[in-house]
Design a protein around this nucleic acid. Structure first.
Lengths: 203, 203
DNA sequence: AACCGTAAGCGTATCTTGTACGCTGTCAAG
DNA sequence: CTTGACAGCGTACAAGATACGCTTACGGTT
């Protein structure tokens, strides 16, 4: 009977993502998204309860791009590493959603499916129940932290340069480390850290 | 000649922290902090350039409570674990600052001193320059992620309960893991994950 | 084909928050 | 006792989220 809806949750999420990619995290406002969709500001409220829900939609769109099916070949370490890397790639494609991801992660079905896969691989690897809990949470913590470090922290690019200029007397180790860090590409850094964690789980 | 100042950066940071502890992250407004200090809203602007700087002060106050001097005894793994645990305790005492910590971490002298200590211990442990970079960043990623997981994610407390009620057919592993997770106290979880990472660094 | 109920979409208004600007009052040196 | 520099304040404004109620387009019914 009534007038048909003109927007879909996916369309709204895509519009919000477009705004985020274009204007950055601070540019995500109800007005901007509404304009992107070609409706008035309040028109948007027919589809989302509030800004919170809108953010949830974007996060789910981004995380939904992660294929949760474990790859076929390789050791369980390699297979988990592939799953982890997929998250990094998906989120890394839209740096502006990183802060939102942190806030909305816990309500994401996509991350739940992903976790299910990782938990399955850990089970296959023969870890005990208790260690599985610790390992899963540890992996999740690493992914979250590493992604943030990569996107929110000037420690990575320009930051290491700044640190390299520190007082060598007070910060000898940091200075040396930062100098070396400049030669380590982000990919290697991320995978290296993950490998350390996986090695620990396997030992 | 001029009128003496009535506020100190420490006092301002303490007031902001009080507001955060009382009203949560969303309660931190310039007005609220000014009121806490007994000055007018704009009076506060005589001491901080903007909200950004105010947040930096609080973060530094909290992180400044971390003793960066490595403990005397034990293996290098144990010594690093103590340093890491100190950060967790300091931040955990004020959950509302967690989101701010993420944004302001890179400008914190306190965290720099802490990193210097960790880097030093890694050097003493005999890690090569390249592995030291990876290990340090990995530890930082773990700390950041684990603290967030603990404070921002309903995955920890009520979340695991919710997950335990999932469809067992679709999420068998998550269900089992979540059930087990309820019996793992946060302390053990945090230290366990850290131990995995440290084991990986040592191998 | 005219009609009408429902929900879409919009406009306006309000509240909250950060912050620019300019006034006023106070302290201490002369 | 005067005076000038700066602390502190009040007002004003802009941006943003969102409540509320009107208007209007659709599509099934007569």
């Amino acid at each position: 009977m009534p007038r048909p809806r003109s927007l879909t949750p996916q369309g709204i999420a895509a519009a919000a993502l477009a705004v985020l990619d274009r204007d950055g995290t601070g540019g995500l406002t109800m007005r901007a998204v509404a304009q992107e969709l070609g409706v008035s500001t309040m028109g948007l409220y027919r589809y989302v309860a509030d800004r919170e829900e809108l953010e949830g939609l974007v996060v789910e769109l981004v995380l939904g791009a992660v294929d949760p099916v474990p790859p076929a070949g390789g050791s369980w370490q390699e297979r988990i590493a592939v799953l982890v890397e997929r998250v990094r790639v998906a989120v890394g494609a839209h740096p502006a959603v990183v802060p939102l991801t942190m806030t909305h992660r816990h309500r994401s079905p996509a991350i739940l499916r992903w976790s299910e896969s990782v938990a399955g691989l850990l089970t296959e690897a023969g870890t005990g129940p208790r260690q599985r809990v610790v390992a899963l949470r540890g992996l999740l913590a690493y992914v979250i932290g590493a992604i943030q470090l990569e996107h929110l922290g000037p420690l990575a690019g320009p930051g290491t340069v700044a640190i390299a200029g520190l007082d060598p007397a007070e910060f000898p180790n940091m200075r040396a480390t930062a100098l070396e860090a400049r030669t380590v590409p982000p990919d290697e850094e991320f995978r290296g850290g993950l490998a350390l964690l996986l090695a620990g789980i396997g030992s």
